[in-house]
């Protein structure tokens, strides 16, 4: 069919009609919310961690009872409407114990992450700048790193009385060498940067250089490291409590609840199950957050890992 056969009455507009507005104008979301939308996994981790934090803080208001209240007459009840997660062999409510256990775990995780970051930062900065101290400090750190962290924490706990504070100190000591090594490595590579040379040439004093030029650049890797330390500290705390070298048995920590449920796990698996799920979820949340932070703060690593 040729064009000439078309009826000539068809009106051909000189200018194409505007397209219907099916595509809204593209507006990339920026800022925090936009970032979370692009990284749903990290958002999930953050949300899970916040939920866990809220659980820990508001534990008394979440339909819990006294986590240490004994009720020998109602021991080892299966999960039911009265005992959501069942009751243990002393009749204590596992639901309440698990919720209160979040406090211990998060307290230990965050405290160890913050303390070991601060101490590791100090040691790392010092040994990165003071040459004579570097050799000694790094030999000591090498030695400490050769002791598997859990064993080091066990050895420390065997010499002190079990308390949350001592658990935090023991795990912190076991984590310090890794942070120090990380910070020292960053400091040594930053020292070679032209802008540090320039600052030195300008006559900037060493403390100012550290404070203004070195420290801010160590914060990104140390933040990522801190989240991983937080995750591993929570696991270590649970392990210590589980084998009887951690928090004292009166305190309902997840490790303690599992240690108590251990004898009965073949017949009453729920006593071990619920704290295990909570612990795993919390550690998972922190790890996902850490992965997200790492990708955000160091895009080169994001491609590799």
């Amino acid at each position: 069919m040729s064009a000439s056969s078309l009826p000539s009455t068809i009106h051909v507009p000189a200018i194409a009609a505007p397209l219907p507005d099916v595509l809204p104008p593209f507006k990339p979301r920026r800022g925090f919310i936009g970032y979370l939308r692009k990284n749903p996994i990290m958002a999930f981790g953050g949300f899970l961690l916040l939920a866990m934090l809220a659980t820990a803080i508001f534990a008394p208001y979440l339909w819990t009872v006294d986590p240490t209240a004994l009720a020998p007459a109602r021991r080892t009840r299966e999960p039911s409407a009265m005992y959501w997660f069942g009751s243990d062999m002393l009749g204590r409510d596992v639901y309440s114990r698990v919720l209160y256990g979040a406090r211990v775990s998060l307290l230990v995780g965050f405290s160890v992450a913050i303390l070991s970051s601060i101490i590791g930062l100090t040691i790392g900065l010092t040994s990165g700048f003071v040459r004579w101290a570097d050799a000694i400090v790094m030999r000591v750190m090498d030695g400490m790193m050769s002791i598997p962290p859990i064993l080091l924490a066990i050895a420390l706990m065997a010499l002190t009385r079990g308390s949350v504070q001592n658990v935090i100190i023991a795990i912190t000591i076991a984590e310090i060498p890794r942070v120090s090594r990380l910070v020292r490595g960053v400091v040594l590579s930053l020292r070679e940067q032209p802008y540090v040379d320039a600052a030195v040439a300008c006559g900037t004093r060493t403390p100012t250089i550290i404070w203004r030029h070195i420290l801010p650049n160590t914060l990104a890797p140390i933040t990522v490291q801190a989240t991983y330390i937080c995750a591993s500290a929570m696991i270590t705390e649970a392990i210590l409590s589980f084998i009887g070298a951690g928090t004292p048995p009166i305190i309902p920590s997840w490790g303690n609840i599992m240690a108590e449920g251990r004898a009965l796990w073949q017949v009453k698996p729920y006593i071990v199950f619920f704290p295990a799920v909570f612990l795993s979820m919390t550690v998972l949340a922190v790890n996902l957050l850490g992965d997200g932070l790492r990708d955000a703060l160091d895009p080169r690593m994001a491609k590799r890992l």
């Binding site: 392990i239 698996p269 295990a276 795993s280 550690v283 790890n287």
Partner: peptide
């Protein structure tokens, strides 16, 4: 990620429960 997050003893109990019990 899961391997890093689920502690040894939790994996141990789950495995023992499924495959042994």
């Amino acid at each position: 990620v899961l391997g890093f997050s689920v502690p040894v003893f939790v994996v141990g109990y789950v495995l023992a429960y499924i495959f042994a019990l």
